[in-house]
């Protein structure tokens, strides 16, 4: 039997569709909602989203693969995103990324062996006055030092 969306997610998608004049326009928020519930957007998820919105699966696939925030396969339980762009670069963001990666024993883009963290180098997060900066599971940690980064990692469940 083909996998199906949960009733909760189906309802959420219908609410999202009310915001736009076309159902296809609800694709980004729908993928975001699906990713929140399913963890990653694998082939089955892409197919279900396509079915719910009435658009071809290839259309969903091309969007899901184009934006950096969509996950196509499962990653670590916590996402650690460290900015190394302009202002963070000037304040040691690249050195910080290296140090965090060394501490966790991964390279940027990789997941720790215990599946706890995925570390990513990201582009400007819009927090340049409080650089360097990282996000852990989408929450900002600003005016970052290695000590502060380590503490944030340790307090992640």
């Amino acid at each position: 039997m083909a996998p199906t969306l949960s009733p909760r997610l189906e309802q959420e998608i219908e609410r999202l569709c009310e915001r736009y004049p076309t159902r296809a326009a609800a694709l980004l928020p729908t993928l975001q909602a699906a990713q929140r519930e399913l963890g990653a957007l694998d082939e089955a998820a892409i197919g279900m989203v396509a079915g719910a919105l009435g658009v071809p699966a290839v259309r969903v696939q091309e969007v899901a693969t184009w934006y950096t925030m969509f996950k196509l396969r499962p990653e670590g339980r916590h996402l650690v995103e460290i900015c190394t762009n302009l202002s963070c670069h000037l304040c040691g963001g690249s050195e910080l990324l290296d140090a965090v990666c060394r501490e966790l024993g991964v390279r940027p883009g990789e997941t720790t062996a215990d599946g706890r963290f995925t570390v990513r180098e990201v582009e400007c997060l819009g927090s340049c006055g409080t650089a360097p900066v990282m996000q852990i599971d989408g929450a900002f940690v600003e005016n970052l030092t290695l000590e502060k980064a380590t503490a944030a990692l340790q307090s992640a469940p």
């Binding site: 000037l90 304040c91 040691g92 140090a99 006055g129 409080t130 360097p132 005016n143 970052l144 030092t145």
Partner: peptide, 8 residues
């Protein structure tokens, strides 16, 4: 580079 937040 030093890791150096502005801290404000």
């Amino acid at each position: 580079y030093p890791i150096r937040p502005g801290g404000r």
